[in-house]
């Protein structure tokens, strides 16, 4: 299963390295979202700095939607999906691989957005451990739930519009918990971030486990 996951994940990342869609399209969009927030919230009144954690995680969520969309658009062309089904790879491995590739891209994006928040909003990064662990746990959860939602919507004619409706309500606690953990860390009260971190970990565990179990029947019949 892990070997299959490695294969699929490496395949997706190789596609990304060669096509550079995430780098050339998703990343600029993510930064643009940060700029738009500055238009909405007056930068001079300190609103941006205080809202930075929430804005950061909303930008991450929006970008995640694009990355997931992309991850399954790759499988839609040239019957790649059927190839994947015929390949004999473990469905759980396919799920883990695709989720890991999405998570990898998101982590790079999060570093970029982190720089963006520091530069554009004047946020001082503090509580590095909690910040980093929050990123890891939230990304794992987003990628797992997103990969599930992605394969659910994949192949449907309305996939572009359906994916956000399926994913955002499920990912809502991730945005909330990650924002709260970041707020605590940036306020210099990292200890208050831990309950939220545990919640993020629980979310990630639940959706990774469910994805591993549910991906087989989904790939088989959908």
């Amino acid at each position: 299963m892990l070997r299959d996951a490695l294969l699929v994940g490496a395949k997706d990342l190789r596609v990304e390295v060669r096509s550079r869609v995430a780098l050339n399209q998703v990343a600029p969009f993510a930064v643009l979202v940060l700029v738009l927030f500055a238009f909405a919230l007056d930068p001079d009144r300190g609103l941006l700095a205080s809202a930075a954690p929430g804005l950061y995680w909303i930008a991450v969520t929006f970008s995640a939607l694009l990355a997931i969309q992309r991850s399954f658009a790759v499988e839609a062309a040239d019957g790649a999906r059927d190839g994947l089904r015929l390949s004999g790879l473990d469905p759980a491995g396919i799920f883990l691989g695709k989720a890991a590739a999405i998570a990898g891209q998101l982590l790079v994006l999060e570093v970029l957005l982190g720089v963006g928040v520091v530069v554009l909003y004047g946020t001082e990064l503090r509580g590095g451990t909690v910040l980093a662990l929050t990123c890891l746990a939230a990304t794992a959860g987003l990628a797992a739930a997103g990969t599930l939602a992605g394969v659910l919507a994949a192949g449907l004619r309305v996939r572009e519009t359906l994916l956000p409706l399926l994913l955002v309500p499920v990912a809502a606690p991730v945005v909330l918990a990650a924002t709260k953990a970041w707020e605590a860390a940036l306020d210099g009260q990292s200890d208050q971030g831990w309950p939220w971190l545990r919640l993020l970990g629980a979310f990630a565990a639940v959706y990774v486990a469910f994805g591993v179990v549910a991906f087989g029947p989904l790939l088989e019949e959908a």
Partner: peptide, 27 residues
């Protein structure tokens, strides 16, 4: 096909409820 993907969606939707519960209660 609709049956299987809506079943997965339905279970995925209920799995988030306890997590949501803690998140918004602490909030």
């Amino acid at each position: 096909r609709r049956a299987i993907i809506s079943a997965v969606t339905g279970v995925a939707a209920v799995l988030v409820v306890p997590i949501n519960h803690f998140a918004v209660t602490w909030w």
